[in-house]
Amino acid sequence: MSDNTIGLVNYGITGNIHSIKKAVEKAGGKVKIINKKEDFVDVSKIVIPGVGSFKDAMEELRNDDLLDALKEKIKTRPTLGICLGMQILSTLGFEYGKTEGLDVIKAEAKPMIVDGKVPHVGFNKIDVIKPNKLLDGLENEEFYFMHSYEVVNYTDIASLTDYNGHKFVSSIQKNNIYGVQFHPEKSREAGIKLFKNFIEL
């Protein structure tokens, strides 16, 4: 616990853990890949990555027998969900039908409806609504987004982002649980700084 190892949850074929691992290491962190529930034992923080659909992500977590352990561990360990990893923190997801999420944040992941191209792809500013340690020093930075769904939540918003006049939740925070819709591992120095902040939590 004291060595501050970050457990990166590797579920199924959909995770892009490679680039997140590199970025956390660049930020000075130590990464342990979580392939099975026993691997959680000596990690002090958790990162949930995500490439894919909400439905598949939850199925993979269940198939790999990681779901219950993950739900248990995030109660006590600082956790960062990235992109789909943030979305599955929600109660429900509406991608390819209705799927139950991890339900640690009362929210829903819904398709983006916006007067612009979807997926929303590219660099955008975050507008910090409620400052937190993760976003410390990153108030005016731009991050890389690549998503077609967004988290709808009214209580735990940390930042909003404007895409063609549509404001959506670009990060959330509830106690020690953080979620970012963008990809810090793909956002150059600003992203590395975010991982530094996470390591230092």
């Binding site: 959909t14 490439v51 659909s53 598949d56 789909l84 390819y96 998503h147 077609s148």
Partner: peptide
């Protein structure tokens, strides 16, 4: 698209 998400 179904497995990896359409953005990928």
């Amino acid at each position: 698209a179904k497995i990896f998400g359409n953005q990928a």
